[in-house]
Each structure stands twice: as structure tokens, then as C-alpha cells.
């Protein structure tokens, strides 16, 4: 339907190449023991930091205009995990957030709902009520978020409570200490245990806290480790440390899910979280998705933004596109 709008010059190439797909169990040997897992993760191709960042920056220069921008903004809104993770969260705050997720722009009913609201486990029930009757999911951080420094039993209890309260999605944190100590099997086992606790009803997002893993090589290894352990999503960060989602670390994770599907046939989602505040940034991330993992990921089942203030900026941009004039903060809701 859109094709006619575009110059024949700027047409993208058809996708001719299909990556070889091997059976899902192709990597089952990898997790047979601590040493096989370590060998596998350390055998992944290295990442050149400068080259990775240059590629991310280069994709950031894509110019997304007019119809493409309108499409991207709506898509981005639909991918937001609208988040509140404060010690001061109250039922009132969470209800307001839920209402906003369901109907982001009360003045324009054509605005898509966000993908989910993301809250602490004790707020899941409240959130669930707030979005009842809509397609908006409730995601809950768990596993002693954000540090993850609690006994496994506590973490699993945290997860079970959230699931029991109706969480559709669990955002767990990995044990970065274990990862950095090279204890990959411990991280793996924890993820599989959490996955089991999620049961069949909740999708699992695995947060790496990329800022703490520090190197791109570690982020690539963590991505594969998470996917091998059964993550439905891999997620950059908690939003609670200095460096959260960046174009470069998200690009790297998109490469990981792309390659994982090529090898196993299993598709895994990606969620950058923290630090994405403007529509311009969000559109850049969508370009990364489009040109790295591909259009199969351009759907809120496979890509999310963990954000709060981003939504209002997207809404203001949306109003600008609709009316032709710049909007202001008084024309979007503050919750």
C-alpha cells in the first residue's frame, strides 16, 4: 500500500538471502557442562568497539521523514513498556500509568496503546486492574531487581508472586557478579529456574545490566547465554545505572538475536531500556532493528522500549505530524 508513495530510487532490496537454519537442539551440547558453556561463549566472534559504534552511529544518520516517520512513531508507541520503578510508587501512580498505557493520548483515539506497563511485583495486581480489558500487558521486574543480590529462593519467590498476581511478563536481572567471575553456569541455571517459575503464562525478559558487564564481548556472551537459557527477550539494563541502553549495545544484541534465530530457528525479542527519551532516539533504534535483525522484529511482540518519559515525546511528535504545529508539554498528560 505504501510502495507507491516512494521514489523508485530509494527502494530497498528484496531479501534474497536466507540464513541456514539448523535444528533447535543444535546448541544443546553447549550447555552440557560448565566447560563446554565457557568454551562456547568465549568462542563467539569478538566485537571491535570502534567498528560497532561507528556502525550504530552511521545507522543513526538515516533520515526518517513524513510517512515513514508517522509509521515509526506509532510503532514506537506500541512498543513502549511504560515503566515506573520507584520506591515511592503507589496504587494511584500505577493506576494512572495503566490508564496512560491504554490510552496514551486522550485527545486522539487513533493513538495506539503501549505494549505494557512495567512495575514492581507488589504492584502487579493493581496494574492488572488498571489495564483490564485492553491488550496492554503487565510486566514485572523480579529477582531482587535491580541488584539481583538475593538468595535464589528469594528471587524465585519474587517471580512466582508476580506471576501469581497476573504478570504477563517477567523482567529478571542476571547475576552480574557470577557472570563477571566467569561462573556462567550459575547464571544459566538461574535463568532456567526463573523461566520455569514463569510457567507457560509469562514471557521472560532477561536483563544483563550492560553497563556493568562493561565490554561488548561480555554483552555478546551474555546475549547468547540468555538465549540458550530460554529468554524470550534479552534486555539491556535496569535503568538504574549510569549507562543503560545505547545504539551500540542494542545493535550488538540485535545481531545476537538475528544470529541465534539463524542457528536455532528460535526468535528472541530485544528490549533496550533506560536513556531513550526522545522520538528521534526511538526512531534511530527502530532503524537499527530494521537494518540489523530485520522487519520480523518490527512488532511489539519482538521489540520493546523500556521507558517512561519517551512516551510523551512520541505523543508530541505525533501531534505535530497530525496538526503541522509543534506541541507542548501541556498537551500531553503528566502521570
Amino acid at each position: 500500500m505504501r510502495t507507491g508513495l516512494y521514489s523508485r530510487y530509494a527502494r530497498r532490496y528484496a531479501r534474497l538471502v536466507t540464513m541456514p537454519t539448523t535444528a533447535p537442539n543444535a546448541l544443546s551440547d553447549v550447555t552440557a557442562s560448565d566447560s563446554t558453556l565457557r568454551r562456547f561463549l568465549h568462542g563467539l566472534p569478538g566485537v571491535d568497539a570502534v567498528g560497532l559504534e561507528a556502525r550504530a552511529a552511521s545507522l543513526g544518520t538515516r533520515s526518517i521523514k513524513t510517512t515513514a516517520k508517522a509509521y515509526a512513531i506509532d510503532l514506537a508507541i506500541s512498543m513502549v513498556d511504560l515503566t515506573t520503578l520507584e520506591g515511592a510508587d503507589t496504587p494511584g501512580k500505577v493506576r494512572a500509568l495503566g490508564a496512560k498505557a491504554v490510552r496514551p493520548d486522550p485527545t486522539d483515539r487513533t493513538t495506539p496503546a503501549t505494549a505494557a506497563v512495567c512495575v514492581y511485583p507488589d504492584m502487579v495486581a493493581t496494574a492488572k486492574e488498571a489495564v483490564a480489558g485492553s491488550a496492554v500487558k503487565v510486566a514485572s521486574v523480579a529477582t531482587a531487581f535491580p541488584a539481583g543480590r538475593a538468595p535464589i529462593a528469594v528471587k524465585l519467590a519474587d517471580v512466582r508472586e508476580a506471576v501469581a498476581a497476573g504478570a504477563d511478563e517477567i523482567d529478571m536481572v542476571i547475576d552480574r557478579g557470577a557472570f563477571l567471575a566467569g561462573n556462567y553456569m550459575k547464571v544459566y541455571d538461574e535463568i532456567t529456574a526463573v523461566k520455569e517459575a514463569c510457567g507457560t503464562s509469562a514471557r521472560l525478559k532477561v536483563i544483563f545490566e550492560t553497563g556493568e558487564l562493561s565490554t561488548y564481548d561480555n554483552i555478546r556472551r551474555a546475549s547468547w547465554l540468555g538465549m540458550l537459557a530460554g529468554a524470550d527477550f534479552i534486555k539491556t539494563s535496569t535503568g538504574k545505572v549510569a549507562v543503560n541502553a545505547t545504539p551500540a549495545n542494542t545493535l550488538l544484541m540485535l545481531e545476537a538475536v538475528r544470529d541465534f534465530r539463524a542457528q536455532t530457528g528460535v526468535q528472541v525479542g530485544v528490549k533496550p531500556a533506560g536513556g531513550i527519551r526522545t522520538s528521534k532516539d526511538a526512531v534511530k533504534f527502530l532503524v537499527l532493528v530494521n537494518e540489523t535483525a530485520g522487519e520480523d522484529w518490527l512488532d511489539n511482540h519482538w521489540f520493546r522500549f523500556g521507558a517512561s518519559s519517551l512516551l510523551n515525546d512520541l505523543l508530541m511528535q505525533r501531534q505535530k505530524l497530525a496538526t503541522g504545529r509543534y506541541s507542548g508539554p501541556d498537551y500531553v498528560t503528566v502521570d
Binding site: 570502534v50 553497563g211 558487564l213 561488548y216 554483552i219 549507562v243 545505547t246 549495545n249
Partner: peptide, 13 residues
């Protein structure tokens, strides 16, 4: 040769 592999949370952003 590229430099700047100190860490993903380092110089570049």
C-alpha cells in the same frame, strides 16, 4: 588500528 576497547560504558558514550 582502532582504539577504545576499554569498555562499552567507557569513552564512547
Amino acid at each position: 588500528h582502532p582504539t577504545g576497547s576499554l569498555g562499552a560504558s567507557g569513552s564512547a558514550y
